[in-house]
Design a binder for these strands. Structure first.
Lengths: 254, 254
DNA sequence: CGATTCATTGACCGGGATCAAGAACCGTGG
DNA sequence: CCACGGTTCTTGATCCCGGTCAATGAATCG
């Protein structure tokens, strides 16, 4: 059974059976359960471990002086949380769960060994970092230039696409256990206004929400309505064209 | 004479004289002049070269369907523009000049060689990437949670701090050749409102602008007024504590 | 079941957008 | 040197998107 981490990394790189084994071991070595709203790593701390979301939902966030919270990224199953911890000795933001979650811990030493000896794994992690950066940039555009309607819809659609790439979509339905307050903290809107926008999406038959299960009723229409454009996720390229020019470039580099 | 690139990278790492030489050579190998508002790399393109700002000012930006532009980051002298090009084979955003600038080009092959053989240089570039990510995250907070006044002030103050770290500040004065339209595109405000906020900073004797030269009249007061908090830049740590735990961790890794 | 969190809706308000019109500042050519 | 056309900056008047405040349901959980 493939671990979520492997499923995620397979978006970026092709692995030998041995690599797959190593990745699966990595993620199953040490897992812990978290409740909703618990911190995994706190701003200012340094952890000797790297964390990976196995199930549930986590986020990168930061508290501001005035008490408000800004969610900067959602971390879904398969997402590594803090692979940058090798370099920085203090986190400049916190990572916490939004729903009950299983989180895998990998010792820095173990990780280091893998990155050094397994180019294709190092490559996949590197690629993952760049995808994260792309997501961050897109969020800036989102907040800077889009109205509330597009902002909310864009966020939902992005999660939908990431879930689909990961394989966690069943007939346009997926689990996304956030509250409207969480969505507000992520979009920079108020919970009240998020609610109004969701209502509108429901009335337009673009979205349905049942508890924590979301359904994109008409993906093409939603995509168009919020002007979603996914190149920044850099999906489909690496994996489908392992021998592309870019692929060679990287393999040579590592 | 140290190149801007070396000055920038020296924020992150200590170099041997030989390393310094290599970095200086890197940046002086091939330089070209750009006018204001010219693209260096365009979204969707792949360039075989990595670019570094030597003088002037550039930015990462993206055009939206509706014609508006979002500036996601400013690139000041010493900043590498696109070191991620090894991995991605298409840029997911554009890089362009805002003012007449000198840009150095480094061939991917040359860069690759350096990263492979010079751990301390690779480390500095890696650190730089993480700083970029921190800046991106801070911008998200900026746009998501702060009002127009703080947004504009924060941006100016950040440039001020980065310029100071780089050594381009003379008695709180620095060159920042942007128009108010550029600031609007970076903050997600309208040019009109940026103008009003700048007027306020001037009236409060926090800022003075003379042409393209900016003066932070009272750094402490401005910092306080916009609630600036700089840990995300990860300055001062790496360099001042080259043998810190983090330093060792990284040197071991590379 | 109370109690607490979460979703929903309405009434009202304000920060920033929009529209518009001058003023100041260019580089350029006569 | 000045006249010019084009940016860029500045300011006022008005409007609207999204925030704020508040009250009521709905759902979840000891």
């Amino acid at each position: 059974m493939d671990s979520p981490l492997l499923k995620k990394l397979m978006q970026f790189s092709d692995f030998s059976d041995e690599d797959k084994h190593l990745i699966n071991d990595l993620a199953s070595e040490r897992q812990s359960e978290y409740g909703a709203r618990e911190d995994i790593v706190r701003e200012g701390e340094h952890s000797p471990d790297i964390h990976i979301v196995i199930s549930g939902l986590a986020c990168r966030y930061k508290h501001l002086e005035d008490g408000s919270r800004q969610i900067m990224a959602f971390l879904v199953p398969g997402d590594p949380c803090d692979s940058e911890i090798f370099i920085l000795d203090k986190m400049d933001h916190s990572i916490g769960t939004l729903a009950p979650s299983t989180i895998a811990s990998v010792s820095g030493a173990r990780m280091k060994e893998l990155l050094l000896n397994r180019p294709s794994i190092a490559l996949a992690f590197w690629w993952n970092t760049l995808q994260d950066e792309g997501v961050l940039r897109e969020r800036i555009i989102d907040e800077g230039r889009r109205d509330a309607y597009s902002r909310v819809g864009f966020l939902i659609y992005e999660i939908f696409v990431r879930m689909r790439a990961f394989g966690a979509i069943d007939r346009e339905r997926f689990d996304f256990p956030v509250t409207q307050v969480d969505l507000a903290d992520a979009t920079g809107l108020t919970p009240v206004h998020v609610n109004r926008m969701l209502k509108q999406f429901r009335e337009e038959n673009l979205l349905a929400v049942d508890g924590k299960t979301w359904t994109v009723l008409d993906p093409a229409a939603l995509r168009k309505a919020v002007k979603y454009e996914a190149s920044y996720l850099h999906l489909d390229r690496a994996k489908r064209e392992p021998d592309s020019e870019a692929g060679q470039r990287i393999k040579g580099l590592i």
